[in-house]
Write a protein that binds this DNA or RNA. Structure first.
Length: 477
RNA sequence: GCUCCCUUCGUCUAGCGGUUAGGACGCGGCCCUCUCAAGGCUGAAACACGGGUUCGAGUCCCGUAGGGAGCGCCA
């Protein structure tokens, strides 16, 4: 039987990293088995579901490259089907009408709690042989409850956690249709997974306690035990404070990472390693993940999200990326901040010399700006330290050598700069730092030779001239 | 409260009865060096606790503690 997995978010907000990780695991499992990966939007909560959230989730999935094989399934479009299945269960005596009011049920729960037991519905409207039910009150619209097995155990053969056994006596008869006739979550999930032919249900482990109920409903619906889906419950992701990641604790939407300059492949890489490992390997391409990821070796315990490591993974991907692609990405980030790249400077070349100097695309863009926009002012501290009259004299010498260079290559520039240093019996820093200030406005840049090479001769000379003029004057004052 | 789950450096993890408990991020030091990085080397840093089982437990069993989840006419 070919593998079918699904990701089933409820559209009440953006796609955050917990959801992204379970989506990733589902996607990986489908891909590595040549199966299908499907999206299902669990939008039955009309109060909280929004089309914006649906779009945000879709956008996040697209950005991460977690492509689904079919159009998304929307639960709200399947109400007729749920209704039919509920009727079927009713007809087969596997579900029944319950006329207890919400208040009465709450009282039952309270009573159970008082006795130190698990709060639950007491089954007072459950039909059983030889039992006469009270007359249904005319003014109470009934709910439909699923008749859960009264004895025995339900065991989950969880691919991640191992076997989990829960006694059926712990489970009460859950509501599968509200008094207004609408179906409830635990029921819809089962019908959907069955109809969609899902073979592997991969989801957050906050669902383990729901699973026995769902398995029992499954069994009531399909006779063939071999049709039961496999379960894999992936642990939660915790925030830095050790608490479950929530909106309070940095559970930002996945697209926020894009804004922060994180690459989708880096986020995916970080997420796949958070809770799973393959020997000492840390950096994975998408293909490597698909090949080596194993549901069975996912960690059982919750993991803490570590932004520092994400940054490191991100830079590893930046360092490994082809210059052309990195340049394209960098151009996007620069364009977003309004930097014009109309001049001579090659963005890919800029990206290439910056890749070791930025952990994020935002940092890269910060450092790249100087290649496209001449400095309008000079860092005061740097000027004071590196642009004293002696330095400016060296700067002038360099300017002339550079101007006379027959060939504008890093090697030639390197020799010119070195030449000035040697001729004046000065360290390289004495010459390089003033150039940096002149050209970048700050005393930090990639190696001076490559920096100038990428910047181009005209821009270099123009910037040096301007600095010479401006700084000289300020020295006079 | 009840049920279920989890527990190796600060963090992510390797380990699957015998290891100097390994790697990675982060942190410290050294080297390289025109700045910043990147890189190389190196250091500090963990088996939650208590009982068993065993010749021998991070590894198996049972407790304890701590953490998490669920117990909805939410999903």
């Amino acid at each position: 039987m070919s593998v079918v997995t699904r990701f089933a978010p409820s559209p009440t907000g953006y796609l955050h990293i917990g959801g992204a990780r379970t989506a990733l695991y589902s996607w990986l499992h489908a891909r590595q088995n040549g199966g299908r990966f499907v999206l299902r939007i669990e939008d039955t909560d009309r109060e909280r579901s929004t089309p914006e959230a649906v779009q945000a989730i879709l956008d996040g999935m697209t950005w991460l490259g977690l492509d689904a094989d079919e159009a998304p399934v929307y639960q709200t479009e399947r109400f007729d089907r749920y209704k039919a299945v509920i009727q079927q269960l009713l007809d087969e005596g596997k579900a029944y009408h319950c006329y207890s009011t919400a208040e009465e049920v709450e009282a039952m729960r309270e009573a159970a709690r008082a006795k130190g037991e698990k709060p639950r519905y007491d089954g007072s409207w459950r039909p059983s042989p030889g039992r006469t039910l009270p007359e249904p009150p005319a003014d109470v619209p009934p709910v439909v409850r699923f008749a859960n097995p009264l004895e025995g155990d339900t065991v989950i053969h969880d691919l991640i956690k191992g076997d989990i056994t829960i006694s059926n006596t712990e489970l009460d008869d859950l509501i599968i249709a509200r008094s207004d006739g609408t179906p409830t979550y635990n029921f819809c999930v089962v019908v959907d997974d069955m109809d969609m032919g899902i073979t592997h249900i991969i989801r957050g482990d906050d669902h383990v306690n729901n699973t026995p109920r769902q398995i029992n409903i499954f069994r009531a619906l399909v006779g063939d035990e071999s049709q039961l889906p496999h379960y894999a419950h992936v642990p939660m992701i915790l925030g830095a404070d050790g608490k479950r990641l929530s909106k309070r604790h940095g559970a930002v939407g996945v697209m926020t990472f894009r804004e922060q300059g994180i690459l989708p492949e880096a986020l995916i890489n970080y997420l796949v390693r958070l809770g799973w490992s393959q020997g000492d390997k840390e950096i994975f391409s998408r293909e490597e993940m698909v090949e080596s990821f194993r549901l069975e070796s996912v960690q059982k315990g919750a993991a803490t999200f570590d932004p520092d490591k994400l940054l490191w993974v991100n830079q590893e991907h930046i360092k490994a990326m082809p210059a052309e692609r990195l340049g394209g990405l960098l151009a996007d980030y620069l364009a977003e901040r309004g930097v014009s790249m109309a001049g001579e400077v090659d963005v890919a070349a800029v990206a290439d010399i910056l890749r070791e100097r930025g952990a994020t695309m935002v940092e890269m863009a910060d450092k790249a700006e100087m290649f496209f926009v001449a400095p309008t002012e000079y860092d005061a501290k740097a000027v004071k330290k590196f642009c004293r009259p002696v330095n400016l004299e060296l700067l002038a010498q360099v300017r002339d050598r550079l101007a006379a260079l027959p060939d504008w290559s890093p090697q030639a520039i390197h020799e010119a700069v070195h030449g000035v240093a040697e001729a004046n019996d000065a360290g390289l820093g004495k010459v390089a730092q003033p150039i940096r200030v002149a050209v970048a406005g700050v005393p930090v840049s990639p190696p001076i030779d490559t920096t100038l090479a990428v910047l181009g001769r005209d821009a270099t000379l123009a910037r040096i001239d301007r600095a010479l003029e401006k700084l000289d004057r300020s020295a006079d004052n």
